[in-house]
Design a protein around this nucleic acid. Structure first.
Length: 273
DNA sequence: CTAAGCGCCTGCATGC
DNA sequence: TGCATGCAGGCGCTTA
């Protein structure tokens, strides 16, 4: 499910619910996630701590506590977070639950276990989890000049470049496709030859696509808080992703599908050059 | 340094 | 009905 907009919606939904709550009890499943779960450290730093804030960086969810610890959750491909009554049954693939001081608990469920749960201790200045990440697409640090510089002399296709979190943070396969379409640039165009004004437009389109997706997901926050954790009706607005052989909404020619960097890639060969 | 490929997992749709 | 195959929205590691 989750790319930047979905993760942002999750953070927005969790913020008013979790902020100010105290973590009373922490438990884990026996299954490993993609990275080793530091169970002992998590209990050590989060037990009986009050939650101070919920933030997002790239696709990471950051749950901060008053002792300056940070719980870092990545949803991977199939991760979900939800709030449930403490008394309710755990579901298959629930891997972490944080019992709160109001008879509810936060549960992390991840079928494929591509997600991760990490902790940054209060004393640590080590933020290596985030060290290599490029700028947030919705923040001012992302500029046309920056992108042109990172792209210079590279032959890498635009779509692969957009998917590289070291260049820009948080863009996944769906939105890389949608951004290339909105920018009218082929996903296969080598980034080294993209002009400054094209980069300016790519940034504009990126922000537009992501913001509209966040807004669409935002309307379903109430759903996700309950049982099913399925944010987002933005899929109804997707122009190319998942629409092979269907007519382009701009020119009517058939949407093409190929595989790039091992990922499904969709585009309109008429509109995107 | 860049760029591509693989593996980690489960579940679902499809075709025989 | 069963079984094999391919595919899925991420990302870190290895290889060239």
């Amino acid at each position: 499910m989750p790319e930047l907009p979905e993760v942002e919606v999750v953070c927005q939904g969790l913020r008013p619910i979790l902020t100010g709550r105290t973590i009373k009890k922490i438990a884990f499943s026996i299954y490993p996630l993609r990275l080793p779960v530091p169970k002992h450290e998590i209990k050590k730093w989060l037990q009986d701590q009050q939650i101070s804030n919920i933030q997002r960086r790239a696709k990471y969810i950051i749950i901060s506590t008053h002792n300056q610890a940070k719980l870092i959750i990545h949803l991977g491909m199939t991760g979900k977070l939800g709030i449930f009554p403490t008394a309710s049954h755990l579901a298959r693939h629930d891997h972490l639950h944080l019992q709160l001081d109001n008879e509810t608990e936060l549960r992390f469920n991840d079928t494929r276990r591509f997600g991760s749960v990490q902790i940054i201790s209060p004393t640590s200045t080590d933020e290596h989890i985030f060290a290599a990440l490029g700028p947030e697409p919705l923040q001012d640090k992302l500029t046309p000049e920056y992108l042109q510089k990172r792209a210079s002399k590279r032959k890498q296709p635009l779509k692969n470049f957009l998917l590289d979190s070291r260049m820009v943070a948080g863009i996944g396969n769906i939105y890389a496709n949608e951004i290339a379409f909105a920018s009218k640039i082929s996903p296969q165009r080598p980034v080294g030859e993209i002009t400054l004004s094209e980069w300016r437009n790519i940034i504009t389109q990126t922000r537009d696509v992501l913001k509209r997706a966040i807004d669409a997901g935002g309307s379903t926050i109430a759903d996700f808080i309950g049982a099913n954790g399925q944010p987002g009706y933005f899929q109804l607005q997707l122009k190319v992703y998942g629409r092979p052989e269907q007519p382009c909404q701009i020119c009517g020619s058939k949407i093409k599908k190929i595989v790039m960097a091992g990922r499904a890639t969709f585009w309109c060969a008429m509109c995107q050059k």
